[in-house]
C-alpha cells in the first residue's frame, strides 16, 4: 500500500478550493436561510392545523369569510384571493426572466423584469392590505358573542338567508357615545362602539319571530352550520354578552376567535416577507440600473434575491391552500 502526500495543487478534501455543493457561498447561505424560514412557516401552519383539528366541529367556513372583491358588491368567494395568487406567480415569472437575462448579461432586460417584479409585489401588498381591512371591519352583518365565548349569527327562518344585526335590532334612543380619552375619569378610552347595543339586538330579536340563531357548529354535510329552532334560539340568546362587528385578536364575528388570530399572524408574517422582498428587490433594481453587476461581471445577486422572492411565492401557495381552500 502506498502512502501519498497531497501536494496542494490537485483538488482534495483538505487542500481547499473544492465546492462539494457546486454553489457559491452566498447562494448556499440563501438556501439555508430559506430552509430555516420554511421551518418557521411550517410551525405556523401546523399550529393552525392543530387549532383547526381541535375545534374541527366549530371552525368557520373560509368561503363565507372572504367573499368580497374591491369595487364590487355581492358575494364572490375566492376570486380575489385567486387573483392575488396569480399576481404573485406572475411576479415570480418576471423574476426568473430577470435571472435568465442576467445570465446573458442583458442589463436592460434585467431592469425591466425587475421593475415588473416590484410592481407585482406592490399590487399583492395592496391587495393584502385591502383584505385585512375588510376582515377587520367585518362585512357579514355582525354577530352576538355569548358569555361562554360562542359566536351567534342570525338567519331568517323562512328563507334561510343571513340577516345583519342592524336589520332587526330595535333602535332605541340612547345617550351612550364612545368614550374619548379626555372624558374618562382615569383617561380611559374605548376602542370602538358597535353600531347597535346588546339590548337593542335582544329586543329586536324578541320582537321579530322569524329570526333564529345560527350556531358555530358545523352540520352533518360539513358545508353549513347548525340553525336552531325559535325556542332554542330564545334560550341561547339569554347568554348574549357582546355585539361583535369585524375581527381583532380578541373577538371575531366570523366564528372561532383563533381563526382570526391565525389569519393575522400567518398572512401578516407572510406579508412582512413580501414587504422586505419588495425592499430588497428595489435595492437590487437600483444596483442593476447603476451598472454594479455589469462591472462585477455577473448577476448572481439577482439570482439570490430571486430565490428569496420565489420562496415568498412558494409560501403563499401553501397559505392559500390551508386558509382559503381546505
Amino acid at each position: 500500500m502506498d502512502t501519498t502526500i497531497a501536494t496542494g495543487t490537485e483538488e482534495n478534501v483538505w487542500g481547499g478550493g473544492n465546492r462539494p455543493l457546486g454553489a457559491s457561498y452566498g447562494k448556499l447561505m440563501m438556501w439555508f436561510f430559506l430552509l430555516s424560514d420554511a421551518l418557521t412557516f411550517s410551525g405556523f401552519l401546523v399550529s393552525y392545523g392543530f387549532a383547526r383539528f381541535k375545534f374541527i366541529d366549530s371552525w368557520p367556513i373560509a368561503d363565507e369569510v372572504f367573499t368580497h372583491i374591491p369595487f364590487f358588491h355581492g358575494e364572490y368567494p375566492m376570486y380575489y384571493v385567486a387573483f392575488m395568487t396569480f399576481i404573485l406567480i406572475m411576479s415570480s415569472v418576471t423574476m426568473v426572466l430577470a435571472v435568465d437575462a442576467g445570465h446573458k448579461m442583458k442589463q436592460n432586460k434585467v431592469i425591466w423584469y425587475m421593475f415588473f417584479t416590484i410592481v407585482g409585489g406592490l399590487i399583492f401588498l395592496g391587495s393584502q392590505a385591502w383584505e385585512w381591512s375588510t376582515f377587520i371591519k367585518g362585512e357579514s352583518g355582525g354577530a352576538i358573542e355569548t358569555k361562554g365565548g360562542r359566536i351567534l349569527h342570525f338567519v331568517d327562518s323562512n328563507t334561510g338567508e343571513r340577516i345583519a344585526l342592524g336589520d332587526f335590532a330595535k333602535h332605541s334612543p340612547s345617550e351612550r357615545i364612545r368614550l374619548q380619552r379626555n372624558e374618562g375619569t382615569w383617561f380611559q378610552s374605548e376602542g370602538y362602539l358597535p353600531s347597535v347595543s346588546v339590548k337593542e339586538v335582544v329586543d329586536g330579536f324578541n320582537a321579530t319571530p322569524n329570526v333564529v340563531v345560527r350556531t358555530e357548529t358545523t352540520d352533518e354535510t360539513g358545508k353549513g352550520k347548525v340553525v336552531l329552532s325559535r325556542d332554542e334560539s330564545i334560550k341561547t340568546m339569554k347568554g348574549a354578552k357582546y355585539v361583535v362587528e369585524g375581527a381583532n385578536l380578541v373577538h371575531n364575528e366570523y366564528g372561532h376567535r383563533m381563526f382570526a388570530d391565525f389569519f393575522f399572524f400567518i398572512t401578516g408574517f407572510h406579508g412582512f416577507h413580501v414587504f422586505t422582498g419588495v425592499l430588497i428587490n428595489m435595492i437590487i433594481f437600483f444596483n442593476v440600473v447603476l451598472g454594479t453587476y455589469e462591472r462585477r461581471g455577473h448577476y448572481e445577486m439577482v439570482e439570490k434575491v430571486g430565490l428569496y422572492w420565489h420562496f415568498v411565492d412558494l409560501v403563499w401557495v401553501f397559505v392559500f391552500t390551508f386558509f382559503y381552500l381546505v
Partner: peptide, 16 residues
C-alpha cells in the same frame, strides 16, 4: 415546480 424550475433546483447538484 416553483422550487425545481423557478428556484433552479433542477440544475443544482443532488447533494444541495
Amino acid at each position: 415546480y416553483i422550487t425545481w424550475d423557478f428556484m433552479h433546483m433542477r440544475d443544482e447538484k443532488s447533494s444541495l
